[in-house]
């Protein structure tokens, strides 16, 4: 099976001179197609940076990144914009929706930006799945946080992108709303063969994934298949222990 997205020897540095920070320090990973991959790691491990670079939101300082067969490093703003519009879906932690557009308009926004006519059947099915059929004419401010995030998921899926990147999608939600959003992502992978990459620091969220990648200090340190919340939590604790030791040393 080919990878939906991958990076090779990815390096990302911020700042210059004394204040230089190396957020990614030679990471090579593949995000498998039609799978749900979670990226975990403590704060500052580089997990968000990895996602931003893989999704074409940010550019690498070194190494290479591919989306499917397309290499991102050589692309200009115009190509990257088209790539985001047509082949990538995003779900962010907060501020996901345009406050002035209705729920339906928010969902079809990436399609509208491309001037493409939405596939009505697909949209209806999607709206059905996220369970917001009676809220389509509402504004985001009239929805709860969980509902807003479901709209964001629907929007990410609307264009049937190659990959959905989700950045802490449950970070601002209570556990029940979070569970609903994760269930949605899970079912998108199972029923629609959607590739999903999710950055999170919540072991319970990571447990919904097929694979968990662990990052620390800008490096890939471990991979876990078929995770459960307990195993992920244990693994993370091991990090904290090691970091604690490193700090003591």
């Amino acid at each position: 099976m080919t990878a939906a997205a991958r990076v090779e020897e990815a390096v990302k540095e911020y700042g210059a001179g004394e204040t230089r920070v190396r957020a990614l320090d030679g990471v090579s990973v593949e995000f498998a197609a039609a799978r749900f991959t979670a990226v975990m790691g403590p704060s500052g491990s580089g997990k968000s940076t990895l996602m931003h670079c893989a999704a074409g939101l940010d550019t690498l300082s070194g190494g290479r990144a591919w989306l499917g067969e397309t290499e991102l490093s050589g692309l200009g703003d115009r190509e990257l914009t088209l790539l985001r519009r047509e082949r990538i879906g995003f779900v962010f932690q907060a501020f996901n929706l345009l406050p002035t557009l209705t729920v339906r308009e928010n969902i079809t926004l990436p399609l509208d930006l491309g001037g493409a006519a939405p596939d009505r059947e697909w949209l209806d099915a999607l709206i059905d799945v996220v369970g917001l059929g009676d809220r389509l004419q509402h504004r985001p401010s009239q929805l709860s946080g969980g509902q807003q995030q479901r709209v964001a998921v629907a929007r990410a899926l609307a264009g049937r992108p190659a990959v959905v990147f989700a950045d802490e999608p449950t970070g601002n939600l209570d556990s029940r709303s979070g569970g609903e959003v994760l269930g949605l992502l899970r079912s998108a992978v199972d029923t629609m063969r959607q590739s999903v990459v999710m950055v999170t620091h919540d072991p319970a969220a990571a447990a919904h994934a097929d694979t968990v990648l662990f990052l620390a200090d800008g490096r890939l340190v471990d991979t876990m298949q078929q995770p459960t919340a307990d195993r992920v939590l244990d693994r993370m604790k091991a990090f904290d222990g090691r970091r604690g030791k490193a700090a003591a040393r």
Binding site: F92, L98, L113
Partner: peptide, 8 residues
Amino acid sequence: LLRALGAG
């Protein structure tokens, strides 16, 4: 956000 979603 618009730019991230693919607005040129």
